[in-house]
């Protein structure tokens, strides 16, 4: 039964110079077959030059429930952004 086939998340590199991006998932008996299934499903029109498959069970994700607390340490650090700094208009090329 395909119920026994684990789920793999599929990531595609659309072309050289770009990151792999998550596009969906496939079921497969193992990673090698997952790669082939992902090729058949997600690259029928030259959408990718490279594929990653990762067993969904192996992904560790942040929880949306703790969204605020988890990301809050960056929220109050406005000085990490270039717009925080006032530079006179007559300073060239900065």
């Amino acid at each position: 039964m395909s119920a026994d086939w684990p789920l793999y998340e599929v990531f595609l590199r659309a072309k050289r110079g770009l990151n792999h991006v998550h596009v969906g998932s496939v079921h497969a008996p193992d990673a090698a077959m997952a790669l082939r299934n992902a090729r058949d499903l997600y690259t029928r029109r030259n959408e990718g030059v490279s594929i990653w498959v990762v067993a969904s069970a192996d992904i560790t994700a942040s929880s949306p429930d703790e969204k605020d607390a988890f990301f809050s340490s960056s929220a109050d650090k406005v000085y990490r952004h270039p717009t925080f700094y006032q530079i006179p208009d007559d300073v060239p090329r900065i």
Binding site: M1, S2, D4, W5, A28, P29, D30, A32, M33
Partner: peptide, 15 residues
Amino acid sequence: EWVRAAAVAHATKRA
């Protein structure tokens, strides 16, 4: 059904 079962058997053997 037999194709799905064979694929699992193959994957198990290879692992």
